[in-house]
Amino acid sequence: MEFEEMQKIWDKQRNEMLFVINEEALHNRVKAKKRQANRIVNATEIGLMFVNTITATILLVDAIIDKEGFWDYGGAFAMMLTVLYLLFIRRKRKIAANKFDRSMLGELDHAISNTNSILQLVSTMIWWYFTPIAIFTISKMLIKGASVESWLLISGAFVLAYFLVNWERNYCHIPRKRYLEALKQKLME
């Protein structure tokens, strides 16, 4: 069969509808989807900023009440820095969203850039988020003398968080980035 013949077969379907739409259900779903748009990303960013601000406030109040809490002041300051960093990342992401053209290649570049942002955030999180918090927490526990249970609990929480973040990076984001890059390669070759 020549391609022109395939074209004729294809054209015949124009008047035949393959599916029937339930318009009312669709309208309801689209409205729900609209509300849901960006909810996950926003919830992660805003949630993290909220939790860090609350933690910073608690540490600050603790430091003021203790009157000798250098580690609490330091911890509160480090926490506030993470909030500012998250604000910066969020703003960068929003500006970048309008930068890409609407072609397929543009959309792919956008998706790759989003994945890169997440990877950057995850890598930054490990070194610039967990490490200072771990240092402040461990130093405070050393100075104030924590029980064995506290040591086990806190160390376990840090190790678990470290593995979870790494797992997410290696098994979700990196394969997705590779797939998108392979797709871009297919588009360009």
């Binding site: 395939m6 077969i9 599916f19 029937v20 339930n22 259900a25 669709l26 779903r29």
Partner: peptide, 15 residues
């Protein structure tokens, strides 16, 4: 509730 349902019209074999 389904958004779309397939039309009963059988698809041309070549299509």
């Amino acid at each position: 509730e389904h958004l779309i349902s397939e039309n009963d019209t059988p698809l041309d074999e070549r299509l």
